[in-house]
């Protein structure tokens, strides 16, 4: 049994004409040292992870699993402008921070961790990728604790940010940093489990066997559409507690984190898959 012993959820809509919300003051209170020359993606990772840990001491070999669909897009834009538009050699700090692992480095340094530190993406299903990798390692016993986070950054101007993601002009955008501390064991915390199914019918049968009134169902956006509709028809899914109006690339993480930090009863089931690749079911219980 794996438990989510802590969670944090930062989700901030960014509206047209508005500046990005400043993060420096919050970081000053949350970070052990003052990190200089860090980009917004790193700031978001530090903010979410520090809030999730919130005074708790993690095991030093706790693994970090950071996921993102877009990664440090703001820094990558700056670097590409320096290089292509301005024909300048990128500044070393900008170049180094083009790598997703720079954010994990700062999170590890801030929290005093020295375990494995992975950045994994699966575009809009990056939560499923990092949760899967973390749960594999926890089940395997490779790590005794996992700090799992998903971070998505918004860049200005918002019109360009939408264009990059092929989003309609009126789509509200959000940035987010959603984190969980997972470890094996039983206790008062919410349990997190993952089951994998080759056949959709087996998934349905399993879900029917464990479903209780008041449970929540979240069909991932990467799930095959017909199966998602079948699922939503077949279960009294209830309203998701997470926000659905503002978009970022890993909204499933926002839903899961919002449910994790709430005291709502029941279980949230996150289902994903495709007839050609099989099905996965993450469930976060009471």
């Amino acid at each position: 049994m794996i438990q989510a012993i802590s969670a944090s959820d930062y989700l901030q809509p960014v509206h047209d004409g508005a500046a990005l919300p400043p993060l420096e003051a919050a970081l000053k209170n949350l970070c052990r040292e003052r990190f200089r020359r860090i980009d917004r993606f790193i700031q978001l990772a530090l903010l979410g992870s520090a809030r999730c840990v919130a005074g708790r001491t993690l095991q030093p070999d706790c693994g970090i699993y950071l996921g993102s669909g877009l990664g440090p897009i703001g820094n990558n834009i700056l670097t590409q402008q320096q290089l292509i538009r301005d024909a300048e050699i990128p500044k070393p700090v900008n170049f180094v921070n083009t790598l997703g692992s720079s954010a994990g480095f700062h999170v590890a340094r801030n929290l005093g961790l020295r375990g494995q530190n992975f950045f994994i993406s699966r575009r809009g299903a990056s939560l499923q990728a990092v949760l899967g990798a973390a749960m594999a390692d926890l089940t395997h016993g490779v790590v005794g604790q996992a700090l799992v986070g998903v971070v998505e950054e918004v860049t200005l101007p918002l019109g360009e940010h939408r264009l990059r993601q092929h989003l309609p002009e009126d789509r509200t955008l959000a940035e987010g940093s959603h984190w969980f501390v997972l470890q094996p064991g039983t206790g008062d915390s919410r349990s997190l489990d993952l089951k994998r199914f080759a056949e959709f019918a087996t998934l349905e049968d399993f879900l029917k066997s464990v479903w209780r009134t008041g449970d929540r169902l979240c069909c991932a956006r990467s799930m095959e559409t017909h199966a998602a509709k079948t699922m939503q028809r077949g279960f009294d899914a209830g309203a998701l507690s997470g926000p659905t109006s503002a978009f970022h690339d890993s909204l499933e993480a926002a839903w899961l984190a919002a449910f994790a930090v709430s005291r709502e009863p029941g279980t949230l089931f996150l289902v994903d898959g495709h007839p050609e690749r099989g099905w996965s079911l993450f469930y976060l219980g009471a």
Binding site: G71, L99, G100, S101, G104, Q116, N117, F118, F119, I120, S121, R122, A129, G132, A133, H274, E276, R277, G278, S280
Partner: peptide, 17 residues
Amino acid sequence: CRGDTYTYNTACTASAN
């Protein structure tokens, strides 16, 4: 192929990881 994908970006250890 249609299986799951896991894309690692951990600099020079990426494919080893």
